[in-house]
């Protein structure tokens, strides 16, 4: 830009020139698009899901079959052919994937974060961090394929009774997938712990182990906790890995019983893909149940995101 421009610019009010107005409104519209997206998601899910339930369908002027809201929320049988829509059957297997992946990802992720933030040399970090990013960058359908083709047969050696489709292999790959998320958010929190705290610890004669576990981790706890919730919300919403590896038969399993992880079941996300992909009678009630599951899924992940946000803000130690 030459000085001529600046001279003319200096002599007038620049905030409201056409150019400034135009660019500012463009940027504003871009930002507002995210609000539009949210409104569309919420609106669409609420409107379509309410066509599904007996109690709300008359409001939407829907004729034809509907399902009971109470049965939907409390039923444990998901059999579309028999018009049984008990979402708990799906929620239970989603819960299993979440628990299973948490068992793997939470300890490993935090350990990774401690190692990267406290122990690793700059050089090791420069190799490990991109490697972890690649872990997160592998497409989820590929993870699903890995689980089905390589991990399940390997598990079959240890657990002969394991099904072709099982929650265990799905949980393992989902767990691996979310390690980087736990690690990177936790590490950010640990790096934010001021060095003075560590120095004070060393000054008291503490070892590096004491400092890491006794000072850094407690100080970064809110960040670590919020990383847990975010990662679990990601595990709940994970679709392709469970669609390929977890199975296609909806079943209500007990998530606390380890034996049920050897069986296959149908998590919420996989059920949604299946609804669009198989010979189930389309249109009608089954089609609308898609949006009802979507709403449940959205609400669960939204609540978790909000909690994570709240924890990170509310309990953050400010130095």
């Amino acid at each position: 830009m030459s000085t001529d421009d600046l001279e003319t610019d200096l002599t007038r009010n620049t905030e409201n020139t056409p150019r400034e107005l135009l660019t500012r409104s463009f940027f504003f519209l871009c930002a507002a698009l995210s609000v539009v997206t949210t409104i569309s998601i919420v609106g669409l899910l609420v409107v379509e899901a309410s066509k599904f339930f007996t109690i709300t369908a008359p409001l939407m002027d829907v004729k034809g079959e509907t399902a009971s809201l109470v049965d939907f929320l409390t039923g444990t049988t998901w059999q579309i052919n028999n018009q049984e829509f008990g979402v708990l059957a799906l929620v239970s297997s989603t819960l299993m994937v979440t628990i299973g992946s948490a068992v793997i990802a939470l300890p490993l992720g935090v350990a990774t974060a401690i190692y990267l933030s406290e122990y690793a040399s700059a050089q090791a970090r420069s190799v490990l961090k991109p490697a972890l990013e690649i872990l997160a960058g592998v497409p989820t359908v590929v993870y699903g394929f890995f689980a089905l083709i390589y991990i399940t047969p390997a598990l079959g050696v240890v657990f002969p009774g394991i099904g072709t489709f099982n929650m265990l292999s799905a949980s393992i790959v989902v767990g691996i997938m979310i390690i980087p998320m736990v690690a990177s958010i936790s590490e950010d929190a640990m790096s934010a712990v001021p060095d003075e705290l560590r120095q004070a610890g060393y000054g008291m004669g503490a070892t590096k182990f004491d400092v890491s576990t006794g000072i850094v981790v407690p100080a970064a706890l809110s960040g670590i906790f919020s990383s847990f919730i975010l990662a679990l919300s990601r595990a709940i919403g994970e679709t392709m890995a469970v669609t390929v590896a977890a199975g296609a038969q909806a079943k209500f399993l007990n998530p606390i019983n380890p034996a049920s992880y050897l069986e296959g079941a149908l998590p919420m996300t996989a059920a949604m893909v299946q609804l669009l992909n198989s010979d189930i009678t389309g249109g009608g009630l089954a089609y609308r149940s898609l949006f009802a599951i979507g709403l449940v899924l959205f609400v669960i992940t939204l609540i978790m995101n909000v909690i994570s946000d709240y924890v990170a803000r509310r309990y953050r130690e400010v130095y």
């Binding site: 669009l276 992909n277 198989s278 010979d279 189930i280 009678t281 389309g282 249109g283 009608g284 089609y287």
Partner: peptide
């Protein structure tokens, strides 16, 4: 596309999107 017989009729064929609908 594999959509299921019913899904194919309801969401693709009858709205005029597809030329063929397979059905079992």
């Amino acid at each position: 596309q594999s959509t299921g017989s019913g899904g194919g009729f309801a969401n693709y064929f009858c709205p005029g999107e597809t030329d063929f609908n397979n059905a079992s």
